[in-house]
Amino acid sequence: MTYKVEIRWHGRGGHGLVSTSNLLCEMVVRKGYYAQSIPIFGAERRGAPTQVFTRISDSPIRKRSEIKNPDIVIVTDPSLFNIIDPLHGLVDKGIVIVNANESTEISSENNFKIIKVNAVEISLESGLTVGGIPVVTIPLMGALLKILGIVDLKTVEEVIRERWRPEIAERNIKALKMASEVVEIG
């Protein structure tokens, strides 16, 4: 049985989508998977809608085109639903991980599984901010890692600690752990 997951990230310029997708690839590659992180570049500027694609597979990945039918969509800002359709092409029973609090309405007529992660709150509580702005992509990745279930916590921590100095690494790890607790697998 082959393992293939296609993930599409929707966010805004400055959210750190590219770095987070690359970080995810590092973690899964360390577990022996193949991965690919494709940023879509246009006239990027802070705050403008952006997209990144992540492919994960247990065999080498040849194609490099945009992901049209993702298995999982990640949305870093619920206000994006007002200006684009982040769920377009999402597969049947696809998963949506969105940065939102419980009261935020995310409506979908399809049978998608919508997982709300209050990434802002988690980041603030973990002290994970850059220039006072919460880093929302890390908690969202925490939820994603729980759903994927292919990277153990030890590897996650190892990759994070290689990338950041101890103080910052611990904040990232705390945010990832808090987010994964939000997600119920079922």
Binding site: S21, N22, C25, V29, Y34, A35, Q36, S37, I38, P39, I40, F41, I61, R64, S65
Partner: peptide, 10 residues
């Protein structure tokens, strides 16, 4: 450009 230059892979 981008599909290779900026795409990250092992």
């Amino acid at each position: 450009a981008f599909v290779i230059s900026h795409t990250a892979e092992p």
